[in-house]
C-alpha cells in the first residue's frame, strides 16, 4: 500500500476521519444532542471533502473582480455551489432534529433515546 499517497492527500484523509467520527457519533451515541453534533460533524466533513475537490492551488474564489475573465484565475465553482446547497439541507435537517429533540425532552425529561423507548413501553402497559 502506498502510504505516501495518503500523506500527500492529507486533507482528504482528515475529511474521511472526520466523517467516520461524525458517522459513529450519529449511530452510536445515546444522547440525542450528541447525535445531532455527530450529524453536523459528518456533514461538515463531506463539505470539506467537496471543497477540497474544487480547490486548485494558488487560485482565487470564483468571483469576478478587477475584470479578470480568464478561467485560469479561479477555482472550480461547482463544488462550492454544492457545498452551499448542502449547508442549506444540513441546516434544515438539523433544525428538524432539534425540534424533535425538544418535543421528546418536554414529554419525557430525558435525552436518552433508549430510556425514552423504555418509558414508552411502560406507557403502553
Amino acid at each position: 500500500m502506498d502510504f505516501g499517497n495518503l500523506f500527500h492527500n492529507y486533507a482528504e484523509a482528515v475529511a474521511m476521519i472526520l466523517f467516520g467520527i461524525g458517522f459513529s457519533n450519529l449511530l452510536l451515541q445515546k444522547n440525542l444532542m450528541k447525535k445531532i453534533i455527530g450529524l453536523n460533524i459528518m456533514d461538515t466533513a463531506t463539505y470539506l471533502f467537496l471543497a477540497l475537490k474544487g480547490y486548485i492551488d494558488g487560485r482565487k474564489a470564483p468571483v469576478v473582480v478587477d475584470g479578470i475573465q480568464s478561467m485560469e484565475a479561479y477555482v472550480n465553482p461547482i463544488p462550492s455551489g454544492l457545498v452551499l446547497t448542502g449547508i442549506v439541507v444540513s441546516v434544515s435537517v438539523t433544525a428538524l432534529m432539534l425540534s424533535l429533540t425538544i418535543r421528546l425532552y418536554r414529554r419525557y425529561h430525558t435525552l436518552d433515546l433508549d430510556e425514552i423507548s423504555t418509558l414508552l413501553k411502560k406507557e403502553d402497559k
Binding site: 450529524l39 459528518m42 463531506t46 428538524l96 432534529m97
Partner: peptide
Amino acid sequence: NGRTIEAATRYMIMSLLGSGLLLL
C-alpha cells in the same frame, strides 16, 4: 403522541446516516 415522535426521531437518525453515506 410519544410513540410517533420517538419513531420520527429514529427514522430521522437512520435516514441521515443513509443520506450521509449517499452524499459521500
